[in-house]
Design a protein around this nucleic acid. Sequence first.
DNA 1: CCGGGCTGTTACAAACCGTCACAGTTTCGC
DNA 2: GCGAAACTGTGACGGTTTGTAACAGCCCGG
Lengths: 251, 251
Amino acid sequence: MISQATMSQQHGAVRRFATAPSQAVSLRSLFGGQPLETFETGMAIFWEGDDARHVFEVVEGVLRVFRILSDGRRVITGFLYPGDLLGVSLKDHYLYTAEAVTRTKLRRYEHGRFQDEINRSPELRPQLFACLCDEMAAAQDQMVLLARKSAEERVASFLLVIARRLGGEQKHPVVEIPMTRLDMADYLGLTIETVSRTMTRLTNCGVIAPSSRHAIVVRRLGQLAVLAGEADDGDNHAAGAGAIQQAVWPN
Amino acid sequence: MISQATMSQQHGAVRRFATAPSQAVSLRSLFGGQPLETFETGMAIFWEGDDARHVFEVVEGVLRVFRILSDGRRVITGFLYPGDLLGVSLKDHYLYTAEAVTRTKLRRYEHGRFQDEINRSPELRPQLFACLCDEMAAAQDQMVLLARKSAEERVASFLLVIARRLGGEQKHPVVEIPMTRLDMADYLGLTIETVSRTMTRLTNCGVIAPSSRHAIVVRRLGQLAVLAGEADDGDNHAAGAGAIQQAVWPN
DNA sequence: CCGGGCTGTTACAAACCGTCACAGTTTCGC
DNA sequence: GCGAAACTGTGACGGTTTGTAACAGCCCGG
């Protein structure tokens, strides 16, 4: 149903265990002995402001993590997939609410003990640190998206991230989208109408095609990348980049 | 000129050393022996894509950290103040460009050695971890701002954060704003015109008053908090919050 | 002291996206 | 299997923000 891979999200809600999936001591193995807890669709794991007593590992399903302004406006700061961690932070209280998008299975770890384990193990620490760095990078991408991208670029970026993750290297990946249009809208800083219209336009352009109700087929991955507005080339490191930046912003 | 305190920013660009300003072993003391380097206004410390060879401590001045889309759109993901760290990440290449907003003084630390020191010291690690958590929290605030706040709320939020930091508990804090309108616009996801208009409106409402060219006086801090659109109450923890959230989003 | 360049401000028209309204479809509960 | 509720898609309209432009103020050097 949903792959084990992960996508951009943030929080102390941590991403894939990229560096060491099969090491003897991995972050994931920490949770191995804990009982599996199930949360039905729409149920909250915890609320913003609750005492931050536990760290969770997502075993199955998808979560949304969000904050709400006093007048009801909601901002989803990330979606969590199997393998992600939830609630990693030094704060006394959770800074956000976490809810199950689909039926979700979690393992729970007591917060203080988690810290102790991390402090004790020189193998776990760099893994956690790497996760936090990935998380930070994802948060930056999201800030770029929210600050400067058009509605079309936002939707395209969103679909692209999921497609690359779930679809791997397939040419026409089938992308599961378990969240509702409202979830997407609150994640992308748009309204559901704009999301709907944009999805329709992408369909009419032949970039994507509806598959099932909560899934699409990406027909033109390259075009989607262009629409996403990112120089996704992959050679934007090292030597050349500096000169380009300088040329654009000489100051 | 600019206080030692810090403000919201992100990156591996780390915030205040909140927990241990005077400990024998602090993150800051790590950099003590390094020579002081000066960067003039507008100069880059490094560019997005450069090899990530060093970690920096900001000693004096203000930096901006940003990314640029292929067509020139710029997003400032944070401003760095004295005491902040820059370039803390496990990536091979910097993910963003860092430039001096004012004349800036830095100390440089070799990346690998920094990692070693962190790994070695059980006192430094929690400090760094706490910094990263603060950074993550700031990134979330910024996502909320960019995703759902109006132009006025964004500007008010920005001023409020600086005012609380620089002005302490003063009733009418004088807020230094060393960055240009363009910097503010690219940080808040607006245009310079909108920033200008909004600042003018806040002045006309008596909420702020111009002081010098790059400074304002906050005349009504409470009103600024209201305009910022955050429930800044401070009792939004624990018991009550859950029920409220539930009421708003029963799902 | 004066002039050029940059930053900041204001005005106006236009575009994008949000708001409102409604219809079609799916899902869920009974 | 049925009905109600939730979710989705589409259109018309309006508002906030943008973009363009012109102008004023400040800093700099000549």
